[in-house]
């Protein structure tokens, strides 16, 4: 194995059903339903998926949802803004914990 992540592995995702077909079917049916047009458009759902993919830093997901976003008509501007949302939430999640730091420091300090 040259690398833990190989783009050629992505099309093999469906093979996961070989060992547990019923669970895989439930998962993929659910997955398909989630991304179908609903109150959110397919383009909007793809942008959310792209943002989440960056949050969890999944290279398979980043590859797949970059392509999906483009094929659903998202612009590079929209895709970039979506990742800034990821960044803001991830960064914000760190920064908001400063309230704990400040609370503890305040208690310990004169």
């Amino acid at each position: 194995m040259d690398s833990y992540y190989d783009p050629k592995d992505l099309p093999k995702f469906a093979d996961i059903g070989e060992e547990a077909p019923e669970l895989a079917k439930k998962f993929f049916d659910y997955y398909g339903a989630v991304f179908a047009e609903g109150d959110l458009t397919e383009r909007e759902k793809a942008l959310i998926a792209l943002a989440v993919a960056h949050a969890i830093q999944c290279p398979y997901c980043i590859d797949a949802y970059t392509q999906t976003c483009l094929e659903k008509g998202a612009s590079l501007g929209e895709m970039t803004e979506a990742i800034h949302v990821t960044t803001a939430i991830r960064g914000g999640a760190s920064l908001v914990h400063a309230t704990q730091m400040r609370k503890i420091a305040k208690k310990l300090s004169m």
Partner: peptide
């Protein structure tokens, strides 16, 4: 037309956007 090596958006969705 797509601005690269990817498939076009479904026409009805693209028209709406």
């Amino acid at each position: 037309n797509p601005t690269g090596a990817f498939l076009p958006v479904a026409q009805s969705q693209a028209e709406k956007k």
